[in-house]
Write a protein that binds this DNA or RNA. Structure first.
Length: 312
DNA sequence: CACTTGACCTGTCCGC
DNA sequence: TGCGGACAGGTCAAGT
């Protein structure tokens, strides 16, 4: 769910908050969520100062003056939430309620914070890593499903992470033109256009939400095979993809179920979505009923009238 | 080689 | 009410 616009929103937020902050303490206990050794943490993270925050594809990069970077992929349910100094926290460490114990964060930390905001309830059962800064502020990496990860990587080695070696170009880069988009798509001539949009090695940052939204905008059925798309269709798809990504960044991203930004707040793109998660509702363009099917192994939302399936 | 499916996880929802 | 099963969907590994 965090796709390009969601990670970009977090990047913009954290860029205003983290640079200059010095790491004081780090708490983590789930190796897949944070695989680094304590020795590395002590050497390269504790005492390090944040230089800048960047994004590449769906990955967030926090560059440190120790020549290491904190690299985070939120996958499906990851969150990065910053809690400023002065906010009343109920505990300083990870809750212990996840191994068999059915303790909820609420029970463990003494029943209900007056504030209903996520910030007031952190850490919670999904908290995997807490990075504490001098001055008392904290960055929480929460991840309910544990698919995401945060890791400490030498900054010069970041481009050599397998994912970065293979990942495609940024769709919103000024240098990325329709011609480039066409060439990239045509590397997978026999795949469905939706599968290709979701393939991070073709184009970076597109996930299920914006794939469906852009395909609706371009009136293309998601299972259309790339080599059956004409030049005009591909151009339209390029324009629509950029449009939905930019609009969503403006709206602070999409909150389908889990996503929140650096302040623990939801994004509002979903109220602008035309098809995603709108099965049973009417198509804003033609009034037909939006349907949900399965394409490329994913839930897929289309207007059966605007997006005709091409006959083989 | 090109392409598709399953595994990784947990929480929620639906039907019986 | 409780329980099993389907489902959510980003990426990598394994399968066709």
């Amino acid at each position: 769910m965090p796709e390009l616009p969601e990670v970009e929103t977090i990047k913009l937020g954290l860029s205003k908050l983290l640079p200059g902050k010095k790491v004081q303490k780090v708490t983590y206990d789930w190796p897949k969520s944070f695989p680094n050794s304590k020795a590395d943490v002590d050497k390269f993270l504790i005492g390090a100062k944040v230089l800048r925050v960047k994004r590449r594809a769906k990955v967030l990069l926090i560059e440190l003056d120790s020549k290491y970077s904190l690299v985070t992929h939120l996958k499906m349910t990851g969150q990065l939430v910053y809690v400023p100094y002065g906010h009343k926290l109920t505990a300083d460490s990870l809750p212990a309620g996840r191994q068999g114990s059915r303790l909820t964060a609420e029970k463990k930390f003494g029943g209900g914070h007056p504030s209903d905001s996520l910030i007031g309830r952190l850490p919670d059962r999904s908290t995997r890593v807490i990075t504490g800064f001098i001055g008392g502020s904290k960055l929480f990496f929460n991840d309910q499903r544990k698919f995401g990860w945060m890791r400490l990587v030498p900054t010069t080695e970041v481009p050599n992470i397998d994912f970065f070696k293979k990942v495609g170009p940024e769709p919103l880069a000024a240098s990325f033109k329709a011609r480039d988009f066409t060439k990239r798509l045509q590397k997978r001539p026999n795949s469905s256009v939706k599968a290709v949009l979701l393939d991070q090695t073709i184009i970076a940052g597109v996930g299920n939400i914006y794939a469906d939204e852009a395909l609706w905008g371009a009136k293309i059925h998601p299972s259309t095979v790339v080599n059956r798309l004409n030049g005009r269709s591909i151009y339209l798809l390029f324009e629509e993809l950029q449009y939905v990504l930019k609009l969503s960044i403006e709206k602070g991203g999409s909150t389908d179920r889990n996503y929140v930004n650096h302040e623990g707040k939801k994004g509002s793109y979903m109220s602008f979505a035309r098809v995603f998660r709108r099965e049973g509702q009417t198509c804003p363009r033609c009034g037909a009923t939006i349907i949900k099917t399965r394409v490329a192994g994913r839930g897929t939302h289309t207007c059966p009238n605007c997006q005709k399936e091409s006959k083989k």
